[in-house]
């Protein structure tokens, strides 16, 4: 999978948001709010550009005390959401 160019994550107090920025996202008029887990994952993969659901699972396992099946399920869920919101593609 890869992240789509032109989305910048920003802090908003203790929370995080992603807005469409950069010339490629002039017509993006959504704002996505992220919880701290999603912000951690996006922060890790956004700069690299490419990632897999497995990478997300590994990142979750590294930081949180969860079993592998739960991490895999959460990784698939969030990857699906990112595609749905238009900030990542398969």
């Amino acid at each position: 999978m890869k992240t789509i160019e032109g989305f910048k994550m920003r802090s908003l107090g203790k929370d995080y948001i992603i807005m469409g920025e950069g010339a490629s996202q002039v017509n993006f008029n959504k704002m996505i709010s992220l919880n701290s887990t999603a912000a951690y994952l996006w922060g890790e993969v956004a700069d690299k550009g490419h990632f897999s659901e497995d990478d997300l699972k590994e990142l979750l396992l590294r930081k949180y005390d969860v079993d592998e099946a739960t991490a895999a399920k959460d990784a698939a869920y969030i990857a699906g959401k990112w595609v749905e919101f238009g900030i990542a593609s398969r």
């Binding site: 908003l12 107090g13 929370d15 948001i17 704002m31 709010s33």
Partner: peptide
């Protein structure tokens, strides 16, 4: 806060 940010932004 999210709604307020979107309001000021737009």
């Amino acid at each position: 806060n999210f709604e307020a940010y979107a309001l000021l932004y737009s």
